[in-house]
Design a protein around this nucleic acid. Structure first.
Lengths: 337, 337
DNA sequence: TCTAGCACTCTGTGTTCCCGAGTGCCAAGT
DNA sequence: ACTTGGCACTCGGGAACACAGAGTGCTAGA
């Protein structure tokens, strides 16, 4: 049904439409891409493509515009991910290398991605679950309060002020800290609940109430922050773009952690580092936009996801190239630190 | 030159224009506000106001619109800050009280303010300079690396991974930590450089290289992060509003920490908790927008600034009320924790 | 199966026209 | 001296209209 030439026509339509933002007609198409056939032939192919739902015309006697289905076919079969230039790679490398801590890595990453793609970039903070405990610190603030600080191997630091049920001497706190560290050091966060479950029993009975309080906060910290924090950058890039839905809706979605989370979504492939592309209506939470996302993290240790959000009419090959490259570099940086 | 009635006319123009977003004419004015005079009289007053530069007309034979100068007079002399309703106050209180740590306080504050004012809210993280040291922690990661964690009384936590010039035993690190804490605990951050200046001399000579490295990072942390971090929320509220400048410019400015910082600006008054209002062209960095800002923090301990940014045509009394109220509540919360 | 030609259908643009809101000014009234 | 009603004037914005241009679908011929 769709022979090679028809596919070539579809590809040409997508490319032209993306670059010009105007419905593309048969004549211009036959000229710009050297298809070796006449506009009339192209028209016939277009009619077939429209019949199949890959393209549509805004009104009778305007050019054709790709549908979501058309973009989908383009992404899946008609395009190749476009690698970044050497200059861009160098720029990424030096920019990310300058980061001083995890916050800084994430901030730089999201800005970089926004600038590179000229879209809105979205980065999820590395998930705690897959990280390991590097250190647990208990800092006595006064007789009844301690601050719990949890440091992970990704450089992430979580802190909570804990109100104790009774006064506890500093030396006992120190002891508890030592126990906690010997118990948890280097362990995956997901195994923490299990590891601490019988811990109170191994302590002197008088320490147990305080220990229980501290442990409950520790566990709470793990689940609460799990997957939660997401940042974005490049909202200014939305100013020019036109969405089928309102700009307001997009901006609102960006400020809703939950929606943002859903947009980045789960891996659709078995390979977590594969690129996920959701186009227009395929996207359940914000129709009219496209999302290109991927997991990042080194090898089997996938930490979180990042990606970009833009209008359906985006340059998919370039965007996919940028997302993939940034994910790789940030994975490297995190693995090294 | 400007008698009471002319001022009343100006006030009426501002109020009407803010609520309708349409140039206001003499007839509508005389009707809606019971000025007890005829449209013709109002017209005369308007001519005078225009002469003085308080209002202007977009084109001949359209209504009048306030100029920046007109808004300025309105804010300074013709309006009163509008307090929040009891329900709003309760909502603020419960919403802010739920915060678990400093990050959370700031995030909640900025969202709250955005929602309350239906503008873009901007909050600067509490400045380190005025805070005091609650605890310094040194966590050995391996023989050559330690993590420095600095905890302040505002609940802020700064961490850095430090590469040591030579291997240092854990016990020596522990000793250094003890020294640091006894030296710095409870001291203002601004006095830290002074306090640690002679510290290496009081250590065994073999510890000095490591100590010097650690101290230099500590000092760097203090200056680098000083005043730097600013967050915003409510960008979606920009979607409807029309600025004299491009929406894109505004969004870009919001993502530039430096510009944002300048926008929040310094206190213009001797009283740091006073409200600062910058209207349109008064605003050096982003003309066409207005900023309502104030310092927050308890009493003499001003920590940072917060405020909102919106179009020149905003409801100043309501906005000012919301900014002031939120600043007070967040100050309370921070003082309590 | 492709191509050329042709009639047809739209959109977008430019033009004209007109209505109405609003003004400025003047002369009369208080 | 200020206020008011009246009046002519200006200008923006919307409706009606025509028109050019781009693009299409269809049909007949290579």
């Amino acid at each position: 049904m769709l022979d090679d030439r028809k596919l070539a026509v579809l590809r040409a339509i997508v490319e032209d439409y993306v670059s010009t933002n105007e419905p593309v007609g048969s004549k211009a198409l036959a000229e710009r891409h050297n298809l070796k056939v006449s506009p009339a032939t192209v028209r016939n192919d277009m009619a077939a493509l429209e019949e199949e739902g890959y393209i549509t015309q805004p009104h009778t006697s305007a050019g054709r515009v790709p549908t979501d289905k058309g973009y989908r076919l383009f992404v899946d079969r008609l395009s190749q991910i476009k690698p970044l230039s050497a200059a861009e790679r160098r720029a990424i490398e030096t920019f990310l290398a300058g980061a001083v801590d995890l916050d800084d890595v994430v901030t730089r990453t999201v800005r970089l991605l926004a600038q590179l793609t000229r879209q809105v970039a979205v980065v999820q903070y590395p998930t705690l679950t897959r990280s390991t405990v590097r250190h647990v610190e208990l800092v006595p603030l006064n007789e009844r309060r301690v601050m719990l600080v949890l440091i992970t191997n990704t450089g992430r630091v979580e802190q909570r002020v804990i109100e104790l049920p009774e006064e506890v001497e500093d030396t006992r706190i120190a002891h508890l800290r030592a126990v906690l560290n010997s118990c948890l050091d280097g362990c995956g966060l997901s195994s923490v609940p299990e590891l601490v479950s019988d811990l109170p029993e191994r302590l002197p009975v008088e320490d147990r109430p305080a220990a229980a309080t501290i442990l409950s906060v520790l566990l709470e910290t793990l689940v609460e922050r799990h997957d939660e924090k997401i940042v974005f950058a490049g909202a200014a890039n939305l100013a020019g773009a036109d969405f089928s839905i309102g700009l307001r809706d997009v901006l609102e979605a960006l400020e809703e952690q939950v929606v943002l989370m859903r947009l980045l979504g789960e891996t659709t492939s078995d390979i977590p580092s594969a690129l996920t592309v959701r186009i227009g209506s395929e996207n359940p939470y914000l129709r009219g936009t496209s999302v290109v996302a991927t997991g990042y993290g080194s090898g089997d240790n996938q930490l979180a996801r990042l990606g970009v959000l833009g209008p359906t009419r985006m340059d998919y090959p370039v965007t996919m190239g940028a997302v993939r490259a940034v994910a790789r570099y940030v994975s490297q940086i995190l693995a090294a630190s």
